[in-house]
Amino acid sequence: MASSTQSSNTIQTSSFQLIKHINSKLISQDNINKIYISFETFKEIPQYINIEAWSIPLIELIKKIVSLYDSNKKNLILIDSINYIPLNQLSKFISDLIINDSITIITTYHTSLPEFEIPYQNLSRYNLLSFISSSIIEILPNDEKSKTLKINKSCKDYRINFIHKRKSGRINSFKFEFINDEFLPFVESIENNNNNEDLLEGLTTFNLKTSSSAKVIKDNLELPYMEAQRLQESSGAIVYQFEKDDDYDEEDPYEDPF
């Protein structure tokens, strides 16, 4: 399947570990022709065809990559950062690379880089990539506190949101935690859903708690607006009953009690 997978990261949570993990799974597979395009790193990946893209003009780079395709194998293009492709050439760059169904692109998009607005094309690089890609892996800090970059807070363990778009149009979304080199399904913290009544303890001299019997009654109580929702047939009639205190002037033609 021709596809492009995109992982997005910030300075706090680098995609480095995730890409390393993906590589460790791919390295033994001989039926894949692996090409590594580096814009910001120098380290060559073994068993990949390594291209230092920063020194090559974009058009030549595309030609070079396409010439390296192996028609008998699946082709994988790993790009260390897509942020180095200008926005106005981004869709062309990707469409020129995906020439048939055997090609997969995996790339990282750094979300912490600033985007400037282009008046004629109100589309950010991230949005564009989200439309094109078939899978998106968002890398997030595991700990909410580590959103601020502080000393001793460099995230080794992180959380990922994995969004996969199927050909049928169905979108599957999964969440994982990466802890100690292992992906585990992420379970949403239930702390916030805990009974908030504990917070009221000791705050007042009177009782703010609801007893269990009172809670049952409260849950079963039918509120007035529930009754109103059943008035389907009358379709929103305003029922006004004139009371003795209402000041209604019969001679005023503009005053309408209804």
């Binding site: 300075i11 680098s14 950062s81 912490s112 880089l113 600033p114």
Partner: peptide, 8 residues
Amino acid sequence: DFLVRILH
């Protein structure tokens, strides 16, 4: 832009 790219 320069600093963030370097930090990566």
